[in-house]
């Protein structure tokens, strides 16, 4: 199986005054289309930095970054911006739904960024909201929804432009167990749909059962990689 995300010897340091902190140390990493990959590890181990680099929002100091057939380490800022707009969907820990836009307008944002006609964008947004069970609330504002409903809107927004890579940062940490499972089912469906690559950074043990592959990070390095559900279940007593 060919990896849709392939990082080799990736390094990243941050300079703060006189102090330089190496956050990623010669990281090798792979993710595959149609699978959900969990990136786990203690706080400060470099998960978020790795996530930022592999989706093209942060540049690495060294190493090669191959994502969906593109070498992100060789692309300039304008190309990276277009790459993210076309091929990556984002789900954030705190949802980041724009409070002054309706649900339909929020979900349509990625299509508007791609300069699709407004009518088409809003029709597609309503379709996606319907799919996540919020078709009756398209004209509502995010502040009137529960956390679980907001995250479902965020999922609809992340999928509306049919990206090949879905990046999820702690998608269930703000949700109760039942809602978290509902969100994960939506994400599992989205991975199966179009053979999408889904990468999830999480601390939430409750959802480990949804992972097809798991990479554990520690101190800026990828440690153990659990390559299938069996290994994951055994390692985490699921």
């Amino acid at each position: 199986m060919t990896a849709s995300v392939q990082l080799e010897q990736v390094e990243k340091s941050f300079v703060n005054g006189d102090t330089t902190t190496q956050v990623l140390k010669a990281v090798d990493f792979q993710a595959f289309a149609g699978q959900i990959l969990f990136l786990i590890g203690p706080s400060g181990c470099g998960k978020t930095t790795l996530l930022s680099i592999l989706c093209g929002t942060l540049s690495a100091d060294a190493g090669t970054i191959g994502v969906l057939g593109e070498r992100l380490d060789e692309l300039g800022e304008p190309h990276l911006t277009r790459f993210r707009a076309r091929r990556v969907g984002f789900i954030f820990q705190s949802f980041n739904l724009i409070p002054t836009l309706t649900l339909a307008q929020n979900v349509a944002v990625p299509l508007i960024i791609l300069r699709r006609p407004a009518r088409e964008a809003h029709d597609r947004a309503r379709e996606l909201l319907d799919k996540v069970g919020l078709g009756a609330k398209t004209a509502e504002y995010p502040s009137r929804l529960s956390g679980g409903q907001q995250q479902r809107v965020a999922i609809a927004r992340a999928l509306v432009h049919e990206p090949d890579l879905l990046i999820c940062d702690e998608p269930t940490s703000a949700l109760d167990s039942k809602t978290g499972h509902h969100v994960m089912e939506l994400l599992r469906d989205s991975a199966a749909d179009r053979s999408r690559t889904v990468i999830i950074v999480t601390h939430d043990h409750r959802i480990y059962g949804y992972a097809d592959r798991m990479a554990e990070m520690e101190d800026g390095r990828i440690g153990r990689v659990l390559a299938n559900r069996g290994e994951i279940a055994a390692a985490h007593n699921l």
Binding site: T81, F83, R84, A85, V88, F90, S94, N96, V109, I113
Partner: peptide, 16 residues
Amino acid sequence: TRYLGALKAMGTENQT
């Protein structure tokens, strides 16, 4: 900032 950052992450160009 967080919304503008999210828009940038989602591929909104600076000019936009």
